[in-house]
């Protein structure tokens, strides 16, 4: 398997914001008919610069923490790093299979049974049905759901639902792991096992990217911090140094 790596060169992301009037074809046609030069402001198109001048190179083995205030561009950068958005300009070279654990409930169908949901969620995580079948029993054991696994997901308590989603989501060991806040769930007994499982997945990943608002978490897991401010990299480097500055303000 090839080593994973991430390289962003001068990445810029520009969001077009379409409001209802702008989104419609009507305006396009009408403005074409009037024939006048309608510039952007007239047109109502608002453009938001999500990210600007992002230059980052992440090597295998790095644990990168992402900090920044709301709206600083963390989610956008996470999406660039996991290959969902492609930069409007600049280059993003992402090598290695990447899994993002942002919403672990994605793909879950509440009417389907627990077992079917393992398949659904597993497919979303990039596994093939054959692979899922192999690990399916491990997942059931881990959740401790027992016979409940063959009942519809909607009959589960919130805690049970979280357990299942968590167990499937952490069943894959990707090369690049992208997380928005740490995954932790359940009562005391489960939490302990969950934390251990999470730690296994994290240590198996070649690259970890973790956006978080928790200083302890970032310091405990990261070897590097990137501080985003207004869509630009404000600081990039040693976790202690940056954490004191960011959280110390």
């Amino acid at each position: 398997m090839n080593k994973s790596s991430i390289e962003l060169k001068n990445v810029e992301v520009v969001f077009p914001v379409y409001n209802a009037t702008n989104l419609s074809l009507k305006n396009r046609v009408l403005s074409a008919v009037t024939g006048g030069k309608i510039d952007r402001a007239h047109d109502g198109a608002v453009i938001v610069k999500g990210l600007q001048q992002i230059n980052v190179k992440i090597n295998p083995g790095e644990r990168v923490g992402l900090v920044g205030h709301n709206g600083a561009g963390k989610t956008t950068l996470l999406r660039i790093l996991s290959g969902i958005y492609q930069p409007t300009s600049g280059e993003a070279d992402i090598r290695g299979e990447c899994v993002s654990l942002i919403n672990i409930g994605l793909g879950i169908d509440t009417e389907a049974t627990g077992r079917e949901n393992i398949l659904l969620r597993g497919v979303m995580m990039g596994m093939s049905p054959a692979e899922i079948k192999k690990i399916s029993n491990d997942i059931v054991d881990f959740t401790g759901l027992g016979d409940f696994i063959d009942l519809p997901f909607r009959t589960y308590s919130t805690g049970m639902q979280l357990r299942l989603a968590f167990a499937v989501s952490t069943a894959v060991k990707p090369q690049i792991l992208v997380m928005d806040e740490w995954l932790s769930t359940g009562d005391e007994e489960f939490k302990e096992r969950a934390d251990k499982r999470m730690a296994d997945v994290v240590s198996a990943a070649e690259i970890l990217i973790l956006a978080s608002h928790s200083k302890e978490l970032l310091l405990a897991n990261c070897t590097r911090l990137i501080w985003l401010e207004h869509g630009k990299i404000h600081m990039d480097g040693n976790p202690e140094e940056i954490a004191t500055k960011y959280f110390g303000q």
């Binding site: 290959g83 969902i84 994605l106 979303m124 990039g126």
Partner: peptide, 9 residues
């Protein structure tokens, strides 16, 4: 939408 914005497929 939800899938496209979270999973690369």
């Amino acid at each position: 939408q939800d899938t496209i914005l979270q999973v690369r497929m």
